[in-house]
Computed example of a mutant assay.
Amino acid sequence: MQNEELYEEIDSSQSITQRYLGLSLTKFLSLIFIVLALGVYIGVLLYGTNSLEVLFELQEYENYLQSETSRLKHENAELQREYFELKEISAQ
């Protein structure tokens, strides 16, 4: 009989979080808040406006480099043609 009364007293004095998780309600809520805040912070770091701006700037820079490469190849072909024409003229 004493054991049953003791269990009933323990059950009624503990909160749900203490019974199932072993944490007081304030500690449990604090832990939940910390986990949510950390999740939001990491989400902003990964998917925030800074990340998008950097991505767009890198894509723009990549397009610039590709067009610059194409322009330099064309310029190189022109200069090589001119070089070989001059070399042919000097050989004659």
Rank of each mutant, 00 (worst) to 15 (best):
R71N: 02
S51A: 15
F56P: 00
R71G: 03
E85D: 09
S30W: 11
R81K: 06
L31W: 10
R71K: 09
I42Y: 01
K87G: 00
I32M: 10
A91G: 08
N3V: 11
L45W: 12
T49H: 05
E8Y: 09
L25V: 08
L29Q: 14
E62V: 02
E5H: 03
K27Y: 08
E75H: 03
L86H: 05
Y64I: 05
L6V: 11
I89F: 02
G39V: 08
L25T: 10
Y61R: 11
E53M: 11
Y20T: 12
G48T: 12
I89K: 09
T26E: 15
Y61T: 07
F28R: 05
L58T: 14
Y41W: 13
G43W: 00
I32P: 00
S24V: 02
L6G: 04
G43P: 02
L52T: 14
V35I: 15
L52A: 11
G39P: 09
Y7T: 10
L25D: 08
R19M: 13
V35Y: 07
E57C: 07
F28P: 01
E60K: 12
G48M: 12
A77S: 10
L25K: 09
T26A: 15
I34V: 04
T69A: 05
L23Y: 13
S13V: 03
G48N: 04
R19K: 15
S15L: 05
S15A: 07
L29A: 08
V40R: 08
T17N: 01
L36S: 06
Q2I: 04
T69C: 01
